[in-house]
Amino acid sequence: MAAICDSAGVKREAVQASPKLTIGEFATVTHLSVRTLRRYHEGGLLEPAWVDGYTGYRYYTPEQIPTAQVIHRLRQLDVPLADIESILTADDPQHRAQVISDHLRRLEAELDRTRAAVVSLHRLLNPEPADLEVQLLSVPARTVAGISGHVRQEDSLTWYDSAMAELDAAFPPAEHTGPPGGRYDNELFTHGAGAFAVFRPVRNPKPAGRIRVLELPQADLAVTVHTGRHDDIDVTYGRLGSWVVTHALAVDGPIHETYSVGPRDTTDPAEWRTEIGWPVFRLAAGEPSAQK
C-alpha cells in the first residue's frame, strides 16, 4: 500500500490498485446493510480491507464476501455476535464446529418449545368436545423398582430419560409386569422443583445403582388418558383438574402418570397413551367407576 501527502504534508493511505468494492456495493452482494457493516467494523467482527484515510470511506475485497455471507447466515440463526467472533477467529475447525453445534442445539430446544406452545394454543382455541372421559380408580399398593430424586422442572425430561434407561438396562422386557409410571409431588409444578420418582413394575424388584425397591401406597385417583405427544399434556392436566374440582374432592398427594404406550414402545407419537391420575377422596362406595 502506497502513501501520499496532502497539501499540509499529512500522509494518507493511497487507494489500493487491487479490486475493491464500496461499502454500498458490498452491502448489495452480501445482503448486509451499510449500517450493519459499519457496526461490524466498529466491533472488530468484519473490518474493511481498506479505509480511505482522507474521506473515511470503507472498501472491501471480493475475498471478504464468503466471510460476510457466513456472518449473515449465522445472524439469521440468531447466533450471538460474541459466538460469531469466536467462530471466525478460531484456528481449530473442531472448535468452530462445536460452537455452531451448541447454538444449533439451543435453537432446536427453542423450536421444540415453540411447537409445544403452538400445539397447546390450537387445543385451547379449538377445544375438543367438553366431555372428558374420567375413571375413578382405586390403585392397590404395589412394590416396584424405581428411581427417586429431587428434580427441577426444567430438568425433568432429561432426568426421566436417564432414569428410565437405567431401569430398562437393569430389567429386560421379560421381567416387566406392567407399564412404567411416575409420581410427581405438587412442588415440582408449584415451586419448579420437587420429588420425582419413575418406576417399573417387575417380577423381582431389587436395588442396583440408583434403583431402589419402592413401596407405592394404595391411592384413589381420578384418571384420564392423554393421547399423543406430551407437548400439550398441560391442557389435559387442566381439563382433568377442572373435572376434579367439579365432581370430586381433591386431596394432597403426588400426581400419578402411567405410560401405557410411550416413546420406548413406538416412534409414532400418535400411538402414545399417558394415563394421568389425580388423587381424590372417594365419597361413597357406590360411586360409578366412570363419569363424563
Score class of each variant (00 low, 15 high):
1 M>H: 08
2 A>G: 01
5 C>N: 05
7 S>G: 07
10 V>C: 09
12 R>T: 00
14 A>P: 01
20 K>W: 10
21 L>Q: 09
23 I>Q: 07
26 F>H: 09
27 A>R: 12
33 S>I: 04
38 R>P: 13
43 G>M: 07
44 G>R: 11
46 L>E: 05
47 E>R: 14
47 E>Q: 14
50 W>S: 04
51 V>A: 06
51 V>M: 07
51 V>P: 12
53 G>C: 01
55 T>C: 05
56 G>V: 06
56 G>H: 02
59 Y>C: 07
60 Y>H: 04
61 T>C: 02
65 I>Y: 09
66 P>V: 03
67 T>W: 10
68 A>T: 08
70 V>E: 10
70 V>D: 08
71 I>T: 08
72 H>P: 03
78 D>Q: 12
83 D>V: 05
89 T>N: 10
91 D>Q: 13
93 P>N: 11
93 P>R: 10
99 V>D: 04
100 I>W: 05
104 L>D: 03
106 R>C: 02
107 L>Q: 12
109 A>I: 00
110 E>V: 02
112 D>K: 13
114 T>Q: 14
116 A>I: 14
119 V>S: 05
122 H>P: 03
123 R>Y: 07
125 L>Q: 11
126 N>L: 13
126 N>P: 14
126 N>D: 13
127 P>S: 01
128 E>K: 15
131 D>S: 13
131 D>V: 01
132 L>A: 04
133 E>I: 00
136 L>S: 02
137 L>S: 10
138 S>K: 10
138 S>Q: 12
141 A>P: 13
142 R>I: 01
146 G>T: 14
147 I>C: 05
148 S>Q: 11
149 G>C: 11
150 H>N: 11
151 V>P: 02
152 R>F: 06
156 S>N: 07
162 S>T: 00
165 A>W: 03
165 A>P: 01
170 A>S: 12
170 A>Q: 13
171 F>T: 13
174 A>H: 15
176 H>E: 04
185 D>G: 09
187 E>A: 15
188 L>E: 08
193 A>Y: 09
193 A>M: 10
195 A>D: 07
200 R>Q: 06
201 P>Q: 13
203 R>W: 00
204 N>A: 12
205 P>D: 04
208 A>W: 09
213 V>W: 03
214 L>T: 09
215 E>Y: 03
216 L>I: 12
219 A>G: 11
221 L>G: 11
224 T>P: 12
224 T>N: 10
224 T>G: 08
226 H>Y: 14
227 T>N: 12
229 R>E: 14
229 R>L: 08
229 R>K: 14
232 D>S: 13
234 D>P: 02
238 G>A: 03
239 R>P: 05
241 G>E: 06
247 H>F: 05
251 V>D: 01
251 V>L: 03
253 G>Y: 00
254 P>S: 08
259 Y>Q: 06
261 V>E: 07
264 R>E: 01
264 R>Q: 07
265 D>P: 01
266 T>E: 06
267 T>I: 03
269 P>Q: 02
271 E>V: 00
272 W>S: 00
277 G>F: 05
279 P>Q: 03
280 V>E: 02
281 F>V: 05
288 P>K: 13
289 S>P: 07
289 S>Y: 04
290 A>Q: 15
292 K>G: 10
